[in-house]
């Protein structure tokens, strides 16, 4: 090791250190460089396309099962029965947000666009079953019975109408078991 390279080593170490320290000092002094967001009080922008918790507008949902089929992690479970007006009636629509990976595939395939991502991302819970979001708050059995009753009533009504029409006695629609998905 020659004396020149020895001194050069020291010189390089000093200058490069000084260079770096000048940069950090500039950041240290410049208050405008602070980028931290004080989270709960200050919030960053929530973009329109932000993929937060799933939310299903159950009124427009047509229970087509597309979301359940495409979901790669099976976090959506859906139960529907055929209602009196031949449309599907949701019995339960649960999203397990503990499983959900917020990929957004279900929202994309939803035909009536009833399933959406909300901007919500804050949630804390103490038990695992709280991670399952229920979108139908009524008890499933109650809905099932109600729909069955409606279907039965509709069938009875239809049968009565048919009887009233009287021309040809048609066999009444089988109103026994509601169709299950």
């Amino acid at each position: 090791m020659s004396l020149k390279s020895y001194i050069n080593d020291i010189w390089e170490a000093v200058t490069t250190t000084a260079k770096g320290m000048r940069i950090t000092a500039r950041y240290g002094i410049d208050v405008k460089e602070e980028v931290t967001i004080q989270y709960p009080e200050q919030r960053g922008p929530v973009f329109e396309r932000f993929r937060g918790f799933l939310a299903n507008d159950v009124k427009t949902c047509i229970s087509c099962n597309m979301c359940v089929k495409i979901c790669p992690v099976d976090c959506i479970s859906l139960e529907a029965v055929r209602g009196a007006d031949k449309k599907m009636v949701l019995v339960s629509y649960d999203v397990n947000i503990g499983r959900c990976m917020y990929c957004g595939l279900c929202v994309e395939v939803c035909p009536p666009k009833s399933l959406t991502h909300t901007g919500g991302f804050e949630k804390s819970m103490v038990a695992r079953d709280e991670m399952v979001l229920h979108f139908i708050h009524e008890d499933a059995e109650v809905i099932r019975q109600r729909v069955a009753r409606q279907v039965a009533e509709a069938a009875a009504k239809a049968a009565e109408e048919a009887k009233l029409a009287e021309s040809q006695p048609k066999p009444a629609a089988p109103a026994a078991e509601p169709e299950k998905k």
Partner: peptide, 15 residues
């Protein structure tokens, strides 16, 4: 990440 979030809605797993 902000840029990505704007176009796809997520910051890490973009899909």
């Amino acid at each position: 990440n902000d840029l990505f979030e704007e176009i796809c809605g997520n910051r890490l797993t973009y899909n």
